[in-house]
Amino acid sequence: METYVVRVWLPDRPGALGAVASRIGAVRGDVVGIDILETGEGVAVDELVVRLPQGSLVDLLVDEVQEVDGVTVEDVRAVGEAGRDPRLDALETAAILCGADTMDDLLQALVVHGSRTLGAEWTAVVDLGPGTVRVSHGPAPTEAWLAAFVAGARAGGDEQPTGAEDVAWAPLPGVDLALVAGRQDTPFRAKERRQVAALARVAGTRAREVGRARSQRAHPSATGPTP
């Protein structure tokens, strides 16, 4: 069996998801996971984890699913034999971040494991001051592009930068750093952007703890008992 994540747009109405699952079953596929990424204006964007007997059935699967009225397949990507469980991935990544003992280890874990959790092709941590890249993973854009993107995103507040739907970012609270994640031609949906923000908050909390521990080691008398 081979496992795929199938991202679909479907009408937000009773029976639509069941019709899609029926079409997947018609090509001997098995739906083993569902993640609702976004809803609004009568449309839902879902990710289905599907197991197929063989990879050659992917094109037939797409054709069958798109036979359902109002349904469009946005993306199909293969995943490992263990499949993909977004909730478990997020918990495992959070545990790894909380276990990091140094800032370097923390940021490296954030970009490596964050890429997997977010389904990103690349991730980077950008210093909000000079705009330099502290660490990156995957084929990230240039440092100048990342600095300009973060500056524009901060200036725009809650507005998503136009033309950058396949890039998501969030600040790490309290440490003047930002997490940026991207992929090719597959937009980040509302739930995924919340996941980016949640990972950034976890990393920011741990970064402050690491910083305090480092300060205490450097100045033990500052935290010692008063004679």
Rank of each mutant, 00 (worst) to 15 (best):
D85H: 12
V175Q: 04
W145P: 04
E2L: 12
V175C: 06
G138Y: 06
Q108C: 09
V45S: 03
A207M: 04
G129N: 13
D30Y: 14
L10Q: 06
S221Q: 10
D12G: 07
S215D: 14
S56T: 15
A147G: 12
Q54G: 15
A203L: 03
V202N: 07
P53D: 04
I24N: 02
D166H: 10
D46T: 08
V167E: 01
R13C: 08
G129D: 15
V62K: 05
L110I: 00
P227A: 05
R87V: 15
A197P: 09
L10F: 05
V31F: 00
G55W: 02
V150Y: 01
P139E: 03
A190G: 08
A140Y: 01
E192R: 09
E92F: 12
V68Q: 00
E2D: 14
I96S: 11
V202C: 11
T226N: 07
L10E: 04
R84D: 07
D63S: 15
P171C: 09
V45R: 02
V27N: 06
G174Y: 02
D176M: 13
T162E: 15
G152V: 07
V68W: 01
G33Y: 04
R208V: 13
A21Y: 02
A120Q: 03
P173M: 03
P86I: 02
D63E: 15
P173W: 01
V196P: 09
A19N: 08
P11C: 11
A140G: 02
I36V: 15
P161M: 00
V73I: 01
L128V: 05
Q54C: 09
